[in-house]
Simulated assay, not measured.
Amino acid sequence: MILLSFYLKLALGFLIAGFIFHFIGFASPFWNKYSSSHLGLWTYCSDTYRGTTCGSYSAQVAGVHAARAFEVLAVLGYIVLLILLVLYIRRTNVTMLHLSIVAAFVIVALIIIGILCWVYAKRQHEYGLHFAFAFCCIGAILTFVGGILLIRERMTITVVTRGTTSTTSGGVSATRTVTHTRVTVSR
C-alpha cells in the first residue's frame, strides 16, 4: 500500500483537474463564438438551417499555429508530469519531485503563451471568447496551484544521507555508501 502525504494528494487532485479542464478546452471547438458560428483550435462550426456543420480549417494566421503548438506541448507536458509523479511516488526520489515541480510550471507557461497567441491572432475579429478558452485558463490556474502544492510537499521532506567516506592512501581505496531516507516533518 502506498501512503501519500496530504499535500501530495491535494497536488495530484489539482493537477488531474487541471489536465481535464485543459484537455476539454484543447479539444472543444468553442474558443470563440460569433452569432451562429464557433471556432476552436482545430475546428470551425457553423449553424445552418440543416443543423450544425463542422469542419477542420487551416489557419492562415501564424498566431493560430503558435497557439496550437503551445497547447499541444502543454498536453504532452501533462503526460511527462504524470510519469514523473508516478516515479516519485513509487521510488520516493526527490529528483523526480523537483522535475515534477519544474514540469508543472512549464505547463502553465505553455498554456498561457498559447492563450496569448490565440488572443493576439484573433484580436481584429469580432469573435467573443467562449467556454473552451475559459477551460484552458482554468486548467492553467489549477496546474499552477498543483505546482505550489508540490513545492509544499518538497518542504515536508528531509533527506537524510548516511554513509562512510574515506580517502585513498597507499593504493587502498574505500567506497562510499549513501542511503536516502524520507522523513516527513509535521508542523
Rank of each mutant, 00 (worst) to 15 (best):
E71F: 07
V178N: 07
V178Y: 10
Q124E: 14
W31C: 02
V185A: 01
A69S: 11
T168R: 09
M96K: 01
L73W: 08
L99I: 00
C136D: 12
V106K: 00
S37K: 11
M96R: 06
S5W: 02
L97R: 02
R162H: 13
L99M: 08
L41H: 03
G171P: 02
Y88C: 00
T165S: 10
G51P: 13
L85M: 09
V102L: 15
G114E: 10
D47N: 06
Y120N: 11
V119P: 02
A67V: 03
E153L: 04
C45T: 13
R91F: 08
F14W: 11
C117S: 15
N93C: 03
C45D: 15
A104Q: 07
I115L: 08
V183H: 06
F30K: 15
C137P: 00
G25W: 01
S56K: 09
L149K: 10
T168M: 08
R154A: 14
T175R: 06
T43S: 08
H130Q: 13
G51N: 13
S100R: 00
G18A: 03
T48G: 09
A134F: 14
G63T: 05
R91G: 01
L110P: 03
G40F: 09
L84E: 10
S5R: 03
I2G: 15
G163I: 00
G63R: 04
I111Y: 06
F144E: 05
I141D: 01
R154E: 13
G13I: 08
Q124C: 08
Y120I: 14
L97I: 03
F19N: 14
G170Y: 09
I101N: 00
F144Y: 05
L76V: 07
S166V: 13
T158I: 05
F6L: 15
G139D: 05
A66D: 04
T181L: 14
C137I: 14
T143I: 04
Y34R: 12
F133Q: 08
H180T: 11
I141F: 06
A62V: 10
R154W: 12
A140S: 05
N93R: 01
S173W: 06
F21G: 06
L15R: 08
Q124S: 12
M155S: 14
V108D: 12
H22F: 08
G139V: 06
T143C: 13
A67I: 00
I138H: 00
K122A: 15
C136I: 05
G51H: 06
Y78T: 12
H125K: 12
L142K: 01
F70P: 01
V72E: 00
H22C: 05
A104L: 05
W31A: 05
G25T: 04
G147C: 14
H98P: 07
T164C: 05
G63D: 12
R90P: 02
R162D: 12
S46Y: 13
M155A: 11
N93G: 01
V108P: 09
Y49Q: 15
G171S: 08
Y57K: 02
E153P: 04
L99P: 00
Y44G: 01
T95M: 10
S169N: 12
K9M: 12
R50E: 05
L8T: 02
R176C: 09
L3E: 15
L87E: 09
I89M: 04
A134G: 13
L4K: 13
W42T: 04
V72Q: 07
G170T: 08
G114Q: 10
H125G: 15
K33T: 11
L10P: 04
I138Y: 01
F144H: 07
G40Q: 10
